[in-house]
């Protein structure tokens, strides 16, 4: 077991875990943050996406040892109190979430995309989300949600911890 200190959604946390335990399992099992989902376990589907020091990563591929001292943002850290983040609101309104299993990862990927390209064109959206698979939507409504979010004030903020 290794002691790891990291910041999750703005809150400092210390956990004991085997050094190669996946960040995904630490989030889900040790910290009870189940918003990140396991879809494939090999970094193909993106449903376990989280932000690690601002970068979009597949948490199923990150050994917890590598997250020492890192700042992690999960879907649970995107909304501010009970108010939806503009990206979440846009996914709701545009029909960007159907079964919802890819949605947390897709929202984090969108967040990352809009940090990089505040006004992305369609190609940038398509490529920016290509690591996050969705089997329900055919992606069309997700693209519309991203476009709407890019025009909404406050999209590029992650709330500070409560």
């Amino acid at each position: 077991m290794t002691q790891i200190t990291l910041t999750i959604n703005g809150q400092p946390r210390t956990i004991e875990a085997p050094p190669l335990k996946r960040l995904l399992d630490v989030l889900r099992e040790d910290l009870h943050l189940t918003g990140a989902k396991e879809g494939c376990g090999e970094g193909e589907c993106g449903s376990c996406s989280v932000l690690l020091n601002g970068e979009l990563v597949n948490s199923c591929l990150v050994p917890i040892l590598q997250a020492e001292g890192a700042h992690i943002t999960t879907i649970e850290g995107i909304a501010s109190n009970e108010k939806l983040h503009p990206i979440q609101q846009c996914f709701l309104e545009q029909g960007g979430a159907q079964c919802g299993i890819c949605t947390p990862g897709m929202i984090l990927a969108t967040h990352h995309l809009l940090e990089k390209y505040p006004q992305p064109n369609l190609l940038q959206i398509q490529e920016g989300l290509a690591g996050n698979l969705c089997r329900c939507t055919g992606y069309t409504r997700i693209f519309q949600a991203v476009q709407q979010a890019s025009k909404t004030p406050g999209t590029n903020s992650v709330p500070s911890p409560i």
Binding site: G35, I78, Q88, L92, G95, T103, I107
Partner: peptide, 21 residues
């Protein structure tokens, strides 16, 4: 019309409880 999906808020918040959750 196109009202918001009933379980949509829980899904975008990541709070919807799937079986492995």
């Amino acid at each position: 019309s196109s009202p918001i999906r009933k379980e949509g808020v829980a899904k975008v918040l990541g709070r919807a409880q799937y079986i492995d959750d």
